[in-house]
Design a protein around this nucleic acid. Structure first.
Lengths: 191, 191
DNA sequence: CCTACCGATCGGTAGG
DNA sequence: CCTACCGATCGGTAGG
């Protein structure tokens, strides 16, 4: 782990704990036992850390989703793999994921708009899968936006209680969530 | 609407938009076209607004849940009513609900611990309903904590896309969510 | 509801 | 990685 990685690691953890605005550069420096001014050898501004975290994770999620869409053809299968992709990425580094999910609104106006664009694109990918499932007759005729936002909310909530050393692996969580939450979507399971 | 209510209203909306730390007393004053110092006729500190918002909403939700438990006997019915209670309260004032859900961590240490206690108690109420449903054989043998957190996450996510003048009423949303998300819980609908 | 102001803290820079 | 420091802004108070 390079010194730069150490700095980012501490900064992101602090931002997860007390928010972007609640974390001063002096807080970060104190934990690293150096002076605040010294941090500027590792980043140009405090916002850099937020920018990198938000955009890195957005890219990772999108790449995973694109891959799922390339490989699989069946909507139900696509959805299952998309769920697994999402969960495996966000539980990989829960601090980063928290910052990505909750602190992006403190990006500068321009960066924020770009970020929202990426998020919309990602949601669009899920919507397309649900639409496919509906037109193929695999999924029930539920409102697409409603279904997608409910699915993603359930997936993201995993962060609130996922413990890396807990009893469930990321794989098991993905399976359980898929069975539990997405049961409502499958047609043959409806009354 | 009294002047004090106006002040709180503006403050809470600002805090929803840019967070508790991202909202200065000067921001609030500017929108009301008064000086920052004048605000202190309406509250004693900026934290007062956060405290009132968080604890008022926690109390409202708990009272609703207690009532549900008093009136109904069947676990499935209790769960349905608890879901409706939760949704109807959080969509009543979406700004307050956002602050309640996301800004409580900026409460002072002591207040924060009390708040976490209230939240735990509320979750406990839901857990009890799920346990009842399981022991009565109405619900499948899913992990209780897992089920409750997934349910609450879905309910809270409503705030992200609920528009008071949208096509769905709070009642319809509650029904749809109950059918969609909670389908996984009911035993007779399992494969 | 205002003027006038306080001490503390903020993100960041110059220069080494 | 440090010393020394900048201007800006913060929550809040005194006194009217």
């Amino acid at each position: 782990m390079t010194r730069k990685e150490q700095v980012f690691d501490v900064a992101i953890r602090k931002m997860r704990e007390t928010g972007f605005l609640g974390t001063s550069v002096r807080d970060i420096a104190a934990e690293l036992q150096i002076e605040a001014a010294s941090l500027y050898n590792y980043f140009q501004s405090k916002e850099d850390i937020l920018v990198k975290t938000c955009f890195d994770l957005a890219e990772k999620l999108q790449n995973g989703l694109d891959e799922v869409n390339d490989i699989y053809f069946n909507a139900a299968e696509k959805l299952e793999k998309a769920v697994k992709n999402h969960i495996s990425i966000i539980v990989e580094d829960t601090n980063k994921s928290h910052v990505f999910l909750h602190e992006w609104r403190h990006l500068s106006e321009e960066k924020k708009n770009t970020f929202i664009g990426l998020r919309d694109k990602y949601e669009q990918g899920f919507k397309q899968i649900v639409e496919e499932g509906k037109s193929e007759g695999q999924f029930q005729e539920i409102d697409t936006k409603f279904a997608v936002l409910t699915i993603l909310s359930s997936l993201n909530w995993v962060l609130e209680w996922y413990k890396p050393n807990g009893t469930m692996s990321a794989e098991q969580i993905a399976k359980q969530l898929y069975n539990f939450v997405l049961l409502g979507l499958k047609k043959e399971r409806l009354q």
